[in-house]
Design a protein around this nucleic acid. Structure first.
Lengths: 344, 344
DNA sequence: GTGCAGCATGTGAGCGCTAACATTGTTGCT
DNA sequence: AGCAACAATGTTAGCGCTCACATGCTGCAC
């Protein structure tokens, strides 16, 4: 058995064993035509014998293609971003790319710049950025960074394509559902004010209420966490106790809805008998809460896939990079037990 | 202003502008000593002027260090793996490494081999594998793949270090808590049978029950999902209706506990008055369920950090690779409202 | 003055690969 | 027969960088 003296075999080692030139080995490895079938077999055998692995670094140096895509993520402990990331990862792998991930916790321009730099240093060929916060989207648009870049969930008009779920439509569907059940107004527990998704949901909620000719109550500002939902749920209960009409609540995400449900339960408010509750996200637990939570489903996997599609498109035809195409995935209302007509 | 004729500037461009040799530029970039202060300044200025970015590929080719670590993840839509991954990512970045992620959905040897190959192709310097399933851990041990490798949450004795939470201790704490409250036995809704964590929790539960001299009921096999918790919750209620003593349940994760809670609620079983429920994971919702869920907290971030620590250790002293050190992070019981002494 | 550290810098080679061109031998067509 | 086209292979150069070594130069001891 031939040896390469301790170091891992390189192309010329294979060439020697197969009795050809290193270039022929390269041709076989890269599937070029015009190599005699018998030669291919010989080279393949030599590769197997030596356990040769092409050196992707050397290849990248000469081809100027690293085959690496970057992903900029925010808090991946949240349901949505984590799901989206998973979708991106799968799509990237299927397209033959590696995916390098950097998550950014520090939203200041410096923090974002550092994260982007990390990606640039790695010479990624393109990048998907999950940018649900306004601040992040702005920083991204202002900073130099990897290009082409596709934004997910926010940052319209910043000069790069944006892919995301139609938040506003989802919110309107939720409100329309409640109004359709006969509620004369719908309260809103909003997500973090600096999140674009929160803003879009507030907007959709308000517009739909306005369109229906209903009163628009003051929204309550939450932060996505169950805790804030719990606190605001109590606030809502107080409003009701004070005589305000509180028969339906649209909560900006399911985690906060969990808190709202608990608060209502504590003060003896029954859902949906006394108050209807509609959430957003459809986390796995939602169907099994008590009562089962009516919510708006976001297909995060599809968002991830779509984002990668757009990115790959930009990679293939760099000319089109200036004409950002926004891709929107529809949100779908899933009705369960937490929403019902108002009692009398 | 000097130009590089369209192409991005390389080291020799900087050298020309600064009036030094490319090697001196290299020294400045890499912070070598023995460069005159004035020269450093000149080179720095030239770098800034040209917007020079060192080519990491070329550097990697000659140094044989890619600065990339790999992460093999399973279903990142689950709470635990996603959290762990986030911890790994952060630790990797802080240590100056890039992190390339590949998630494996196909647990067959072929699927795992493909995922590993993806990492090897990329010439990662080391790899963290999240391996909660027995099958995955086995495939990993049998297959050639990136080395050094650190396993998270499973795969003891396979020849590489393992980092994880002490599942068994967590389970025992949960059971001891319930037994301490006066329950004469504790039922168990288990996780997916092919998961090592599920197995460890079953084991801990059984041992603790045995140690307390109590009856060990037949565990119910779930699959981590709220749905299975719901179904098995009903099964448990039937057992109770049939006269069996069901006053306490240890559920292998919080998501299933959500389903159990719903099932109990449907049949009029009050928690904790009629039955105590203890979960595992402490997902963000747990504190805000009704009632607040007593559960076992796993510090996933710490697991991720610890895994990377072990990996970096192995990277620095390859000699020690043969003496796998297992690192275990303790689990902590968090008592809330869903557990109480049995009634009468 | 000579010798020899030691600092500051330059020179050359080569990492492992692919692209471009050069070189054969083989075919087909006039 | 003669020449073009093409298939199969080899040869050379170079991607952008770092390493090892070579070269000057200063300063200081003898």
């Amino acid at each position: 058995m031939p040896t390469t003296g301790g170091r891992s075999p390189v192309m010329s080692d294979v060439a020697k064993v197969a009795g050809v030139s290193h270039q022929t080995v390269s041709r076989v490895v890269n599937g070029h035509p015009n190599v005699r079938e018998e030669t291919v077999v010989r080279v393949r055998r030599a590769i197997a014998e030596l356990g040769y692995q092409p050196n992707s670094t050397a290849r990248a140096l000469v081809t100027r293609r690293t085959n690496v895509l970057g992903a900029l993520a925010v808090d991946t402990t949240l349901f949505g971003p984590a799901q989206t990331l998973a979708g991106i990862e799968r799509a990237a792998r299927e397209a033959g790319y590696f995916l390098s991930i950097v998550s950014v916790d520090d939203l200041s321009p410096d923090g974002v710049a550092e994260a982007l730099d990390h990606l640039v240093q790695q010479a990624v060929e393109g990048c998907v950025a999950i940018t649900p916060q306004r601040e992040l989207a702005h920083a991204l648009a202002a900073l130099p960074g990897p290009r082409p870049l596709v934004a997910v969930e926010g940052g319209e008009g910043a000069g790069f394509p944006v892919v995301g779920v139609d938040q506003e439509q989802g919110a309107r569907d939720a409100v329309r559902h409640l109004v359709g059940l006969g509620h004369r107004t719908v309260h809103h527990v909003a997500g973090r004010a600096d999140w674009l998704e929160a803003e879009a949901r507030v907007h959709g909620w308000r517009e739909e209420l306005l369109a229906a000719g209903h009163v628009v109550p003051e929204p309550l500002a939450g932060d996505w966490s169950p805790r804030s939902g719990y606190e605001l749920g109590h606030r809502l209960a107080e409003r009701r106790a004070a005589g305000e009409e509180v028969t339906a609540v649209f909560v900006a995400n399911d985690q906060m809805a969990v808190g709202v449900l608990k608060a209502f339960h504590e003060v003896g408010l029954r859902v949906p008998d006394d108050v209807s509750v509609v959430g957003f996200d459809d986390i796995p637990e939602s169907a099994y809460l008590t009562p089962g939570l009516t919510t708006v489903v976001q297909d995060f996997t599809r968002v991830g896939t779509a984002a990668l599609e757009v990115l790959l498109g930009a990679l293939e035809s760099p000319g089109h990079a200036d004409t950002p195409v926004d891709r929107t995935v529809p949100a779908v209302l899933r009705v369960r037990d937490s929403s019902a007509p108002p009692s009398a």
